[in-house]
Design a protein around this nucleic acid. Structure first.
Length: 913
RNA sequence: GGGCGGAUAGCUCAGUUGGGAGAGCGCUGCCCUUACAAGGCAGAGGUCACAGGUUCGAUCCCUGUUCCGCCUACCA
């Protein structure tokens, strides 16, 4: 038998680093389409290469590793596909910050050098991420690592873009889009975070052009955009204003007049004054209204959200006004404009107003609606099958609560703006012939803009010449694709698509996607749409959505708040197993995880408990003593095998249902409170007596149950289970590739389980009595056990050795009538009565005092105590049928109540005092 | 504005065909009983947010209210 000296305290770090390396070197995680078994595949949500993994990743990855290890042990042909995401804007921002610290900038470097620089960063960050993942024990096939911008994936991106373009599902056009004035790029709708904030509502007078004595009052939250107004709208059926429709008003601070139009969609008669100003270039609603009424568009804010002097001039703002606010950012321009309007008596009211402010999800800058030419995906045709896939169950979302969320969003989906004006990403495969499009290409402030009228040539590679005119000077579209465009292809691009690889054939559709809800729309929805479009099948069958990890106060973790828990730090301090187990045990569906270090510490203790149990077992397994199975196992062995079998069944069921929390809790409960607290205690006398008849068989059971236990535990705590399993008799060279234990319902042993309940109840009653008498655990006592008359009494006789061992004393099994009538403290439960001999009056009084003290000292509390004692007596005398009928109630009332037989008066005296 | 989730012990949370109120941590008392003090044993602690309803019986089902999160949205 292999032996290894196990130190007194478990040192996770040494064990974990050794095994994580060893497993990979021996190739246990390598996947192959050739391998036998039904395929089981998970693609890892690729972490962004923006730095380090946080504890949210640790949760996400731990759950996947649990599934993967479990399925691998079940004999499935497993592939866990790892990789990283280039994370366009986010990564560009990280590198830009670095450049800023170095006193340089993206612009100074130029596009080519900058992109090179990001690739360098990618190498560093990518390495860090992979190191962290390996430390966590993730059993990915590391040889297959992919990156959303590597060669193969770039090929897939080109293929998808070109095919969508050819199918008419990608188009280019000028639209009002969300624009981040700091990142200087377009954002998709979902990249804007909405935040409730306090603003002001300004009421401004717009006098009638023909009759200044009449005016309309418009309300706006953004007075600085009034220069861009091209109409005011009223409701067609509003009697206050409908006679004015078609007339014009004078736009304050400008030399323009604008028409009064009628618009029932835009205007709510009940709100404000019932008059709305229309600024088509700076508001999404107004943009639509502008289209309806064929209004001109004046953009008065530039790409940096500064009031644009040229735009103001075009909009005919008064020259003095232009000089005052031109070039100013919105925040500075607004009070100036407010002042001007006030001076002229055009400002009639300023009220506080709640409003939702949109911010860039990457840099939190306030996003502006901005008119610009962009690329879009016509998404409705792709969304339709993606809706159906979830409706008809081809894709299962767990927990179900997210289904409606998903469907709601998909049914109301808007075209997806996929172009970004940044440098880091997949450059759009579109070229423009300079001779055909020379009028449409404008370079200003170092930014090249390709106007909407230009005609692109879309192809997988640069065309050698213009097919229209034969021109050889072609300009590639400078924009790159939204980062989610490439990650949306992840489930099939990583398997080799567009090539028809064996991997694709074997592992697509993948089995399960494990992710958090915040990227349900960004990523999951896009993968489903792309998967159905290009593979003709769903990308995964189950989507398991887990919660967000927050700090102990429930705050979202963020670097700026300083409440980030670093998984590496935790792993160093408490061990990877403890971290993984903590995260699994807290992964209840539909609730965020508030992670506190104490919790992790608790599971560190669990790992140590496991370690010590193994050390204990080795004391008896390592010697030359006989160890063999027998047909007739002892009661204790039968009981623990039954409990283990139940645990296997339950853990497996919970994993099937993605209830990692319940699986983890069952494992914990089983090992600590059933295996260690009871089983190991029960078998000690057998193990310690080499001549005991049960010894060889019990040693066998000990060794057998431990070996199974570690296989059961392995997906949750991979390192400690491998380390100890190696010291036990086993087959195979690693636990990683051993079969997962399987339970059989028929192995449940009701006789042993029932017998155990009697034993447990008796021992608990006895211990309560001992505690009341303050008898130390080592003190030998004489005690009595009697069973309820309705129950077969031979059970107690069978349990006698366990009673005396666990009870630490001499046990007499006899009806209560045969017990000594004085100096015995009795404890009664529904089925058992246990009495402990009281040695001397002093102890007894003390016990009573304790009892009273525990109950409290007020009259009410003493009454309660009396009631308890009466109930205890009542139970002892209750006829069997009453007990049966009211079992639940009586159990509560009667459990663990003390009955004093020596003298009722003595009790009364104590109570009255 | 719409939608979803939550409110159970001091803290973090389990608790689905409606009948026993539970776990971990923390707290109290006793114990270094030769696997483990990162431990053992025994305890204290809760009108299961509030108000109604259905039921023999509700933490669980229904209605309403309050508070807290989140998602989503064009009320100027």
């Amino acid at each position: 038998m292999p032996t290894r000296h196990l130190e007194k305290t478990y040192d996770p770090k040494a064990v974990e680093t050794r095994w994580s390396q060893e497993w990979i070197e021996r190739g246990y995680f390598r996947a192959s389409p050739e391998k036998p078994g039904r395929p089981y595949c998970i693609v890892l949500p690729p972490p962004n290469i923006t730095g380090f993994l946080h504890v949210g990743h640790a949760l996400n990855h731990s759950l996947q590793d649990i599934l993967i290890r479990w399925r691998r042990m079940q004999g499935r042909n497993v592939l866990w596909m790892p990789g990283t995401d280039h994370a366009g804007i986010a990564t560009q921002n990280v590198v830009e910050r670095q450049l800023l610290e170095e006193g340089t900038s993206r612009e100074a470097l130029g596009r080519e050098k900058f992109v090179e620089r990001v690739w360098q960063w990618k190498a560093t960050s990518g390495d860090t991420i992979v190191r962290q993942q390996k430390r966590l024990g993730e059993s990915c096939d590391w040889d297959r690592q992919r990156f959303t911008m590597d060669e193969g994936l770039s090929k897939a991106v080109l293929e998808v873009f070109v095919r969508l373009y050819q199918d008419g599902l990608i188009y280019r056009g000028e639209r009002l889009i969300n624009w981040c004035p700091r990142c200087l790029t377009a954002l998709s709708d979902i990249e804007v975070e909405h935040e409730e904030s306090k603003g002001k509502l300004y009421s401004i007078i717009y006098p009638l052009a023909d009759d200044p004595s009449v005016h309309l009052t418009v309300a706006t939250t953004r007075p600085e955009t009034l220069f861009g107004d091209t109409a005011v709208a009223v409701h067609p059926e509003d009697p206050r204003y409908n006679r004015l429709i078609g007339q014009r008003v004078r736009l304050p601070l400008t030399d323009r007049t604008i028409p009064i139009v009628s618009d029932a969609i835009l205007v709510d008669r009940e709100f404000g004054t019932g008059v709305v100003k229309i600024t088509p270039a700076h508001d999404f609603n107004d943009y639509e209204a502008g289209v309806r009424h064929a209004l001109p568009r004046f953009a008065v804010l530039n790409h940096q959200a500064l009031l644009d002097p040229a735009g103001l001039e075009k909009a005919q703002a008064e020259p003095a006004v232009r000089d005052l606010v031109g070039g100013l950012p919105v925040a500075k321009a607004r009070p100036k404009i407010e002042g001007l309007l006030r001076e002229r008596g055009a400002l009639v009211a300023v009220e506080d107003h709640k409003m939702a402010l949109g911010r860039c999800y990457r840099c939190k800058t306030v996003v502006e609606p901005y008119l610009s030419p962009q690329w879009f995906v016509d998404i409705k045709p792709l969304a339709k099958p993606a809706i159906e896939a979830v409706e008809n169950g081809s894709i299962r979302i767990i927990p179900e609560g997210w289904v409606n969320n998903y469907l709601g969003w998909m049914r109301d989906i808007k075209d997806w703006c996929i172009s970004r004006q940044i440098w880091w990403g997949h450059q759009i495969p579109a070229w423009y012939c300079l001779s055909c499009n020379h009028a449409h290409i404008v370079t200003k402030d170092g930014r090249t803009t390709i106007l909407p009228g230009a005609s692109p040539i879309v192809a997988k590679s640069a065309p050698p010449y213009c097919p229209a005119c034969g021109g050889r000077q072609l300009l590639r579209d400078p924009d790159v694709l939204d980062t989610w465009f490439s990650s949306g292809l992840w489930p099939f691009s990583t398997l080799g698509w567009p090539e028809q690889t064996p991997e694709l054939k074997t592992y697509y559709p993948t089995s399960t996607l494990v992710t958090s809800f915040d990227i349900l729309f960004f990523w999951v929805a896009r993968m489903i749409m792309f998967g159905l479009k290009f593979m003709g099948d769903v990308p995964f069958k189950d989507v398991y959505i887990h919660a967000l990890v927050r700090d102990a106060e429930g705050q979202k973790m963020s670097k700026s708040k300083g409440n980030v828990i670093d998984p590496l730090h935790v792993m160093e301090q408490f061990g990877t197993g403890a971290l993984r187990f903590t995260l699994a045990s807290m992964a209840s569906p539909g609730r965020d995880i508030k992670l506190a270090e104490e919790r992790i510490e608790g599971y560190r203790n669990f790992a140590n408990k496991i370690w010590n149990a193994a050390r204990f077992a080795h004391l008896y397994l390592d010697g030359p003593s006989e160890c063999r199975p027998v047909s007739e196992r002892s009661f204790a062995d039968r009981w623990i095998l039954s409990r283990l079998n139940d645990t296997i069944l339950q853990v497996t069921n919970e994993l099937e249902a993605y209830r990692f929390d319940r699986a983890a809790n069952r494992l914990y409960q089983f090992f600590w409170h059933e295996y260690c607290d009871w089983y190991l205690e029960m078998i000690k006398p057998v193990l310690q007596n080499p001549d005991h008849g049960d010894a060889p068989s019990t040693r066998y059971t000990l060794q057998e149950t431990l070996e199974i236990w570690f296989r059961l535990l392995h997906p949750f705590m991979p390192f400690i289970s491998e380390e100890i399993w190696q010291t036990l008799p086993h087959e195979g060279e690693t636990i990683v590739l051993q079969p997962y234990p399987s339970g059989v319902p028929s192995r449940h042993d009701p006789e042993a389980e029932e017998r155990f309940q009697v034993l447990e109840e008796a021992i608990r009653l006895l211990r309560t009595a001992r505690a009341l008498l303050q008898y130390p655990p080592a003190k030998e006592v004489s005690f009595f056990v009697a069973q309820d008359a309705t129950k077969p009494s031979q059970v107690l006789a069978l349990l006698e050795p366990h009673l005396s061992h666990l009870g630490r004393g001499r046990v007499s099994i006899a009806p209560t009538a045969d017990w000594p009538q004085t100096n015995v403290l009795r404890m009664v439960s529904s089925g058992l009565t246990v009495g402990v001999t009281v040695e001397g009056d002093v102890d007894l009084k003390k016990a009573l005092e304790r009892l009273i003290k525990q109950a409290g000292e007020t009259d009410k509390e003493i009454q309660r105590l009396e009631g308890k004692l009466k109930n205890a007596e009542f139970v002892a005398k209750a006829p069997p049928d009453v007990i049966a009928d009211h079992q639940h109630r009586l159990k509560t009332l009667s459990r663990d109540r003390a009955l004093l037989t020596s003298s009722e008066q003595q009790l009364r005296a104590m109570l009255e005092k």
